[in-house]
Amino acid sequence: MNIKNNIKLYLNTIYRSYTMLLALIILIALASILSHSFLTVQNITNIFRQVSVMGCVALGMSFVIIGGSFDMSVGSTVSLTGILAISLQPIVGVFWAMAISLIVGVSIGLINGTIITSINGTQGDSFIITFGMLTVIQAVALIITKGFSVPGSNNKSYIFIGNGDIGVIPFSIILFVVSAIIMQIFITKTSHGRNIYYMGANSEVAKLIGIKVKFYKIITYMISGAMAAVAGFILTARVNGAAPKAGVNLEFEAVTAIVVGGIGLKGGEGTLVNTIIGVLIMGVISNAMNIIGISSQNQLVVKGIILIAAVCVDIRKKGIMGEG
């Protein structure tokens, strides 16, 4: 009886965590049938390359969402850190330029987190506050650049971040995957990660068992800011230049990927595996449509449908959880 139960429970968990994987596989299968050039090594690396920027943003944001808040400010954080990383290079050198940008990204998170925790903000508050922050940082990026793009530095090691390969694998993919693995281990295996879950599940209960809720909230925002900076590096290194609006809408795409991957917006659930699957689904959809040659107007319609269809695979999982 007990063993049977455990097996049942186990299958249930697998089913819950991997329904979206199924959706991804179906999408990939469909795309490969529709186009022969889809399932090639070249194209797969391409997809990863395309999603690594948004993917990094989504990884960081997942922390915030699991912790029960929103971070809408990441889009312009990507722009700003990218601009700083590029334009500071001639002055302080690559290392310091990147270090400073990273610090800026983390500081933005620190500011977000500090404001939200010091007013005891709700989830809705975090949405508006980080949205306000998005606007402010966008303005800063525009003011610094006076609205113009910043040309790249031609520094080989910097460009390597966006375009280099290690063996056959692009460096940006490695960066994304390694970050993902480290972050996944952190949030699922460590006590700090668990505390973030507790906070997201019910911050009142978490507070009453002595979890430093404010501290962890700020940490999630700092991680999100840091990952936005990393995304900024990859983005500006790949196109070898920075633009004040380069990151527009990234926050939106990242939230989408996260939710498509199966992480609920109310906090305290899901892991980065969900995020990665969501990111890949979004990447595969765009890539496949380009390869198959759907016109950009039709792409919108198709994308909308596929998005919903992909999430529909998730239904029965929700059904199970919603019972009772």
């Binding site: 295996k189 460590t190 006590s191 700090h192 668990r194 507790y198 978490a206 068992i209 002595g210």
Partner: peptide
């Protein structure tokens, strides 16, 4: 385990 999560972790790992 929520009240003792630190205690049952070794170098951060639960």
């Amino acid at each position: 385990s929520s009240t003792i999560i630190k205690k049952i972790s070794k170098r951060m790992f639960i």
